[in-house]
Design a protein around this nucleic acid. Structure first.
Lengths: 337, 337
DNA sequence: GCCGGTTCTGCAACCGCTTGCAGATCTAAT
DNA sequence: ATTAGATCTGCAAGCGGTTGCAGAACCGGC
């Protein structure tokens, strides 16, 4: 098989300790020995065995990214590709590898316990914040380093990155109101996700601040598919004629648009999606959406985590990533105020 | 920290060898000792340290998935999410974790060498086949297990999964011809990718078999973006009026459609994309595309690799995954034959 | 020539688990 | 009672690195 430290040591005529120290750039090694050792390494094409190293070091230089189970959470694929990209970019630059997984049948906690207990990884990136999250509690208890993409309920010491979900929806809602819209429907995700409640709160507060009555009949709170969104839109239309619909994912927004088109209301109702997926610019009317900059979320999540792993001082435990409202045709609906 | 084998051994009043054997379900352990040991494990919440295990075993139960650098290869994002999903599904079911990475600046071979040399992983999944691929040569030389998504030039012993790229394009081209199309343009990828040459060959052979002259002026062979595809389409239109365009990615096809729409030819030219991305069904005219079943490609890639890693017999070294042509509006163009 | 202080290197233990081999214990046959 | 064989368990070496500590070699100063 391939060369080990012992081989290098033998060839260079030193002990393995010395080889190890050369590798670590230990100052107490004379330049000549270092050169001799490095020569030997070259000759043998030596590469240190990371596993052995990890065992000794208690560090694997690997971080895990836990995605939601795609089966139960089919939305937001583009979000994850981009987040992965951001994480990888930062991680690789600092010598870390990325272990990617998702629950799939097993409950998420089981996976986490396995990952943590087996000592395979140094830290974890979680991609959602749930109410009473057992995983966060577990990681907290075992003091296992982690960072979460999302806004934790207890956000004092946890590392996290997130968009200002409350703020962006507040702003969008306000804007819609100022443009003369009154009946604004809201299709959000499940209530136990913080991202959902934050966004809905932004929506609710904007209505309240502008003295618009809140109508629970046009507020939906589940994760669903394009077709269920279409279905719900039909219900909404049966109930009343909305001025605008905010959907927290482009896929849902597409479902909304579909029903609106079918009922010839495509240009009467403002529709706004989230995540600025590729489709948004190609549908007609093109879909206004919110770019959440998933790549940056991933990048900074990795940054917080790895900085922590390296024991470097951290000036902050969280970062807010700018989300940008991208206006397209779907929300440019004339409305006489 | 957390319990080790030694702790379990002490509590159960046995040696670590025994604990280890219990863990491995070694037959030479009496039921009573086994029970006593398992009790101790329970009490201590023992979880074996995978790193130590790997060191001893020379197996990490981790496989790497190498994606192309997204920066230089921005297309096909959905392909990768789906492939990842398939790989993960199979891998997790068999106790393997997924290490995900891509070159990013570094050349790919460097990463591979690091990954292989550092002994972090048991096997590798590559996601493209290039001509004279240094990586495959390297892996071959070091006899490191790998599987490739794509069709290797030397396909006798290499493990691989792929669509029948030649066949599907041949079929599509033939079909276009039978519908009366004659001038069929082809926008493919870079020539050193096997997927490109396979597809183009299918296209060329279909033309040849139907005695349609081949016009190099409407054959393009680079990876490019939506906007460059639009640009190229302009060139093509300047040169002649094509009957149909086959683009080996939906993003390119969208660029084609854009130019066609701008020049009011959207309904005169049949356009066919690849990868059946979400956009395909939402654009107007909706885009005919080829569903390559990336999830299955990933799933079976993992399967071939892991079966190999487990040393189980393998009846075949490759699998062909069905690709399905999905006809939508963009290719339903009336043409008087 | 002796001594204290540097500078450099090696010994050996350790990280936590696996496994070949030998030895202990027990059973049953002679 | 003796012994061969079967059954179970432990010893100790090994996987490939790291690191505290001790000691060797060398330095200049007195």
């Amino acid at each position: 098989m391939s060369a080990t430290m012992k081989d290098v040591a033998r060839l260079a005529g030193v002990s393995t300790s010395t080889v190890s120290r050369v590798l670590a750039n230990h100052p107490a090694i004379s330049e000549e020995t270092a050169v001799r050792v490095r020569d030997a390494m070259q000759k043998l094409k030596y590469q240190p065995n990371q596993i052995a190293r990890s065992l000794s070091n208690r560090a694997t230089h690997t971080i895990a990214l836990i995605m939601p189970d795609p089966a139960s959470y089919p939305l937001m694929n583009p979000f994850f590709v981009n987040a992965i990209r951001g994480v990888t970019t930062f991680a690789r630059k600092h010598g870390y590898y990325l272990l990617l997984t998702y629950p799939e049948n097993h409950d998420e906690l089981t996976i986490i316990k396995d990952l943590v207990g087996s000592r395979r990884i140094d830290g974890i990136i979680l991609t959602s914040v749930k109410k009473d999250d057992a995983i966060m509690t577990y990681l907290e208890e075992y003091e296992h380093p982690y960072v979460v993409i999302g806004h934790p309920y207890e956000d004092q010491k946890t590392l996290w990155v997130d968009n200002d979900n409350y703020g962006i929806v507040y702003k969008i809602t306000k804007r819609l109101i100022e443009q003369g819209h009154r009946k604004i429907a809201f299709l959000g995700g499940a209530d136990d996700y913080r991202v959902t409640t934050d966004r809905r709160q932004g929506y609710l507060d904007a209505l309240r601040d502008h003295n618009i009555p809140i109508d629970e009949k046009i507020i939906y709170r589940e994760w669903f598919s394009e077709s269920i969104a279409a279905e719900i839109t039909r219900k909404i239309l049966d109930y009343c004629m909305p001025d605008a619909v905010i959907a927290t994912d482009d896929t849902l927004a597409l479902g909304v648009e579909r029903t609106l088109s079918e009922q010839h209301h495509a240009h009467d109702v403002a529709v706004i999606g989230f995540n600025n997926t590729q489709v948004a610019q190609y549908v007609r009317p093109s879909l206004s959406s919110v770019e959440i900059n998933a790549e940056l979320l991933g990048f900074y999540a990795a940054k917080l985590l790895i900085t922590r792993l390296q024991g470097k001082p951290q000036h902050t435990n969280h970062l807010l990533i700018e989300a940008e409202f991208i206006e397209r045709e779907s929300s440019r609906v004339s409305r006489k105020a």
